[in-house]
Design a protein around this nucleic acid. Sequence first.
DNA 1: GTCCAGGGCCTAC
DNA 2: GTAGGCCATGGA
Length: 217
Amino acid sequence: MNNLLDIYQRLTNHYGTRNWWPAETPFEVIVGAILTQNTNWKNVETAIFNLRQKNALTTDAILQLDLETLEQLIRPSGFFRQKAQRLQLFCLYLQDHYAGSLDALFAQKLDLVRDELLRLKGIGPETADAILLYAGRLPSFVVDAYTNRLFGRLGILSGDEKYADVRDLFMSQLPKDIQLYSEYHALIINHCKQFCRKKPLCPGCPCADICLEKQPN
DNA sequence: GTCCAGGGCCTAC
DNA sequence: GTAGGCCATGGA
């Protein structure tokens, strides 16, 4: 029996299809992935709303904004100084190396794109994988704090694993399926937002039970 | 007032 | 190679 696939099925049975990531364009996915670093998504939504109001959800527009203006627009998402810089650095890279084309960036092999993203300041493993999966539609599993929390609670992770260890575990045990990866990450977040608010472990938290009790039969 | 959120960088050891 | 400090806003 495949534990991870089984848990995925139970989460899907319980919550249904999530259709993630919440964004209108691949570029907007990338903006959201950078802005949400250690930040409540609600605050990110406000920042993205501000950018949309200024028609600033394109590489050109973000590069044309002066840094201070960009900082003020994304201020609600927190860490706004470093995030403004990171956004512009990404846009500059895309413009210089791919003439601003995300399609050109994502046309390459997954590992190649991943290494490129990881070399950019402000893009770590989780942000890179979210960009690859949800903006590039490339099969890279996304690990986040919720993943570690839920699967630690389920006894599948010890908490000592590094990011790459957890990603390797999921990618080695699950079929390499973009839709599956996309939904799984979304389901984990959806589940934890409801049942796993406190960290690292909330005593009596029903989150582990929810996915175990909802078996198909 | 305290804790937390869909991380990542830098520095010191 | 890794533990600890730092970045900052807004909601619970």
